[in-house]
Design a protein around this nucleic acid. Structure first.
Length: 689
DNA sequence: AGCACGCCGACT
DNA sequence: GTCGGCGTGCTC
């Protein structure tokens, strides 16, 4: 190496956490390279993409290796902004992963594969210059509530929690807030996050409509690699003014970021469940702080974390209780299933109400969070049940193709003719899924007729929408179009039907069996159920003409449960207050901070042995005495695809204490060599404990 | 993660 | 005699 005129650069590459190479690697470069510059560097026998990280440190000058030369510099692409590097650095540290792993995962995958010439060609395709954004007065005039929220966003520094009922016009606030930021700075950019790919098209359309297609790009895993690279380059070089995408989009390089919006901020989809298990919502808040940019978190049912942050003054709450262009929220009717005959699937009063809607040419939405025909198949003579041989779960009976399918590992078999245990031919479904509900409703409504457009009566149309009916490409869009076109009278579906879709003609929403969430061991289950039911209720009566007659039906065996009482009043603040009180008393998040170590092994013993050793290795690492290590326990779904899973909970009332502990613990975990352990991972701020 | 090297079974 | 199974180990 030519130490006299060569430059030592520190570069991060995609080295996974367990590889032992956690920090940046040193390379030789002929010229000085700025932090954030993209490079190709040799790594073993390969040549990989790297990002220049910090300046040369003086502590590894004499280390036991010779730095290899940088292979190429991708000069066509501007270096990543310092704020982007800070965000990646924080993410890696906070979520206990390697910097390089996080940095490279945050870049479009195609960037890794293309060489300099290919990239130059791609870059030419991305439009240059900053065409003026479209006029600011395209949208409807903001309501006083919307204007109040906008004024506070413009005046304060946030983060803001935009607490607005479904239909209160949160989107218009996002649009106007973005408009303002873009109008003030001719190069400013806004980042808009949505929970799911499915929800991007309609919000994207709103932004394109307002700002013009040239300024808006999408960023999510549904894009082709080429599209994703194109969007990313447009954002990175400042040509895109609005980036709209799913959680991954929080890492988009945006040189002139001026606003961050997180829509439906309570949605669990914002938590990444693989690799670095980040919360895009939390990172959005952090990014806003790093770049001194306002952050707007929007929801009708905020996460208790965000709600508590408002209570403690860390976030500012902006309230929009009124529904725009619609009447009151639907009236909530509870059906006490204790008063119904046993095995009632749909209460007669509910059926009657559905019938009334059909007669009036209105639509109903029936929600059941379980796909398939029945969750279990059981022998009536012996104790055989449709267990999955590979998982600690039942296989679900799908009547349409006569299969038993495991929803966890995918193992599928044809339904046996007779009981595999005793040969009895009488095997019966236990419980109900959407398929059965659809079948049942079709039968019950088969006698009924609906008014046709020509005055003639027509048979009632029942449709089902779940992961099974929307699997094919374009099927979801086709089904939604059918509902919108009024070709469906009663729509049965899983929670996918409750999200976002603006069904104009629906005036009745029913939750058939939401009680399971009340008995869940997950302390967040009530919070999720409340959000789900509120969101479902929001599907009804979005059209002002029918809003007054719109209803939300809930069938429950626990009609006195406070959750339903709050739901009936549409009282999220009351529900949140009681949940937070319980959480505070029980010492649960958001009043304590948690992390999990999850281990996967061939046997449960091996998984727990690893965690036991991890726990022993962790004793004494916490000097503060504020970190609590629990015992290793099997995960609630103990075995998936023949892999045994266990977890260990770590908890502290102090986030810094927990962070210090986890950082000190990491090398200990890394060094553990427990036989039989396949994988392990740390999950900071886990959603399901 | 890749991609090596490394030592033991069934085949042109 | 080789092709190839995937068990450790290294990558600036």
């Amino acid at each position: 190496m030519s130490a006299s005129n060569g430059h030592r650069v520190r570069v991060v590459v995609a080295t996974p956490a367990h590889s032992g190479l956690r920090g940046p690697l040193s390379y030789e470069s002929e010229r000085a390279l700025p932090p954030g510059a993209l490079l190709r560097v040799p790594l073993g026998k390969r040549e990989v993409l790297g990002v220049v990280w910090d300046a040369e440190p003086d502590d590894d000058a004499g280390a036991g290796f010779t730095a290899r030369p940088v292979a190429a510099c991708l000069d066509e692409i501007a270096p990543l902004p310092a704020a982007w590097c800070q965000l990646v650095d924080f993410t890696a540290n906070y979520y206990q992963r390697g910097v390089g792993e996080v940095a490279l995962a945050a870049l479009p995958p195609q960037l890794r594969d293309l060489d300099g010439t290919q990239l130059a060609r791609r870059l030419k395709k991305v439009a240059t210059g900053h065409p003026a954004v479209r006029g600011a007065d395209v949208g409807p005039p903001p309501s006083p509530e919307q204007q109040g929220a906008l004024d506070r966003i413009a005046a304060g520094d946030g983060p803001f929690l935009l607490f607005g009922a479904t239909g209160s016009g949160k989107t218009e606030v996002y649009l106007r807030a973005a408009e303002r930021v873009l109008a003030r700075d001719p190069a400013a950019q806004a980042l808009v996050l949505v929970p799911e790919i499915n929800l991007t098209p309609q919000l994207l359309a709103r932004f394109v409509d307002r700002f013009g297609a040239a300024h808006v790009v999408a960023m999510h895993s549904g894009l082709t690699p080429a599209q994703r690279l194109r969007s990313w380059l447009a954002a990175h070089h400042g040509h895109a003014r609005i980036v709209l995408g799913t959680r991954m989009a929080v890492f988009t390089s945006l040189p002139r970021l001026g606003l961050i919006v997180v829509d439906e901020e309570h949605d669990p989809s914002y938590k990444q469940q693989e690799g670095a298990r980040y919360s895009a919502r939390d990172l959005a808040v952090l990014r806003g702080r790093l770049e001194t940019v306002p952050v707007v978190l929007g929801s009708a049912t905020p996460s208790l974390e965000s709600w508590q942050a408002c209570e403690s003054g860390r976030y500012q709450r902006l309230e929009m209780p009124s529904r725009i262009g619609a009447g009151a929220l639907p009236r909530v009717r509870l059906v006490d299933m204790n008063q119904q005959p046993r095995k009632t699937l749909l209460a007669p009063a509910l059926l009657e109400a559905i019938g009334e809607r059909i007669a009036r040419g209105e639509q109903s939405l029936i929600f059941l969070n379980r796909r398939g025909y029945a969750p279990v198949l059981a022998c009536t003579a012996c104790d055989w049940k449709s267990d999955c041989p590979h998982c600690s779960a039942f296989r679900v009976f799908h009547k349409a193709d006569r299969t038993l399918r495991c929803h966890h590992c995918g193992y599928t078999e044809r339904v046996p003719r007779a009981c595999p245990g005793c040969g009895n031919v009488d095997i019966a479904p236990l419980g109900r899924g959407t398929e059965q509900l659809e079948e049942h409703l079709s039968e019950l409504l088969s006698q009924q007729l609906r008014p046709g457009p020509d005055g003639q009566s027509r048979p009632v149309r029942v449709a089902r929408m779940d992961a099974d009916t929307t699997r094919a490409k374009g099927a979801l869009e086709a089904q939604l179009a059918q509902v919108h076109a009024g070709e469906v009278d009663v729509l049965v579906g899983t929670q996918m039907v409750t999200k976002g879709h603006d069904f104009r003609r629906i005036t009745l929403v029913a939750a058939v069996n939401p009680d399971t969430a009340l008995y869940s061991s997950d302390f967040r289950a009530p919070e999720r159920l409340f959000a789900l039911l509120m969101q479902a209720a929001g599907r009804a009566g979005r059209d002002a003409a029918h809003a007054d007659a719109s209803q939300m039906w809930v069938q429950t065996w626990n009609p006195g449960h406070p959750l339903f009482t709050a739901l009936r009043r549409h009282d999220y603040p009351g529900f949140a207050a009681s949940q937070l009180r319980e959480r505070r008393e029980a010492g649960m998040p958001p009043f304590v901070f948690q992390a999990l170590v999850r281990a996967e092994a061939r046997t449960q013993e091996a998984a727990q042995a690893f965690l036991k050793a991890a726990r022993e290795g962790g004793e004494g690492l916490d000097a503060t005495g504020q970190v609590m290590l629990y015992s290793a326990v099997p995960m609630s779904l103990q075995r998936v695809a023949n892999v045994e899973r266990a977890q260990l909970l770590v908890e502290s009332a102090s986030r810094p204490a927990l962070q210090h502990f986890l950082a000190a613990w990491q090398p200990v975990l890394q060094a553990l060599r427990t036989p039989g352990v396949l994988r392990w991972a740390v999950d900071v701020d886990p959603l399901a404990v």
